[in-house]
Amino acid sequence: MSVSMTSKPHPSSAAVIGLLRDYGAILGMIAVLSIFWYLKPAFLTTGNIENVFRQSAIVMIMALGLTVVMKMRGVDLSIAQTADAAGLIAAMLIIAGYPVWMAFAIPLLFGLVVGLVNAVLMAYIGVPAIIGTLGMMFVIRSGELMATNGAEPQILFTLPRGVTRNFLWLGQRDFGPIAALIVLAIAVFLISFVVMRYTRFARYAKAVGSNVRAAFLAGIDIRMTFGLGFVIAGVLAALAGVALVSRTGIAMPRGAEPFLLDSFAAAYLGTLASRRGEMSIPGTLMGALFIGFLGNGLTLLGLGAPYRYALNGGFILLAMAIGALKRRN
């Protein structure tokens, strides 16, 4: 029975190809970053790395929510706008003199509400997620424009330190030896990882994503499961938005919009980490870090936004092409 092994001509070269297929993309990412390091040694200094980690933290938090939705074959185009509005709410509350805890709690509540509305639209009414969340994105944008009288920035860093210190702690200070923002990112990552691996929701989400009809007939509440994904995405997006404002000290209406595309890039690049080209929580972490280092490296080289856009797009296409090849095998 097992003599069929001999029919394969070069098992070792097949193994090499297999390894390349599985890990080639990751090697490719390391190679890209090595080039940056070679051109700009400052790229890999501790200071710069910590800086990149902080930048990536916000994209990662947002992209994790997106990943949860996309694993169920949904999509959430409203996350960046949700983050934007959440940050704005936080800044306006601080400026208006509300206590710091409210500047954290109310934006998160806002994210929850956005997520719930999305859940009703997509999971219970059945609006296709691309359309529904795109519509939501524009509704939130209108709200922001009206609240800020046409996109006036809400500036925190000119306020007295005493007013803003506690709020800005999350984005600018350290928690023990590590930046608080990085601690937050690690915590969010670990919680997401545990939730998407050890809970019933994760199992149901996987079933909904791969065969919603079978999940329905097996007696799973597919609407609740699908809707919960949008709630998670909404809350995480709001958290990311608050963290962003806490880091920069300024809430620019529409300032978080580029993070939508970065989150997509992170989630799709994350598929490279999986053998079967699937999205995963660790994969998205990896994707977010790569996007962060890429942007930072390009900036160090004096190459700005155009290159970031173009390379992000190129990497998404590359990741999908490699994924298609993996599945074909």
């Binding site: 169920m72 074959r73 949904g74 999509v75 639209l121 997509m122 999971a123 009414i125 059945g126 609006v127 296709p128 997620a129 691309i130 359309i131 529904g132 795109l134 519509g135 939501m136 994105m137 524009f138 509704v139 939130i140 944008r141 209108s142 709200g143 424009l145 009206m146 046409g150 909904v208 919603v212 597919i222 609407r223 699908f226």
Partner: peptide, 30 residues
């Protein structure tokens, strides 16, 4: 306000789709 226009467009988009899908009893997977 012209600032409300994108939101109104968004709502029009969602409503025009919701009209067509609400009786299908599906979920909005892509």
């Amino acid at each position: 306000s012209s600032q409300a226009l994108p939101g109104i467009q968004g709502i029009v988009l969602i409503l025009s789709i919701a009209l067509g899908v609400i009786h299908k009893r599906g979920i909005g997977q892509v």
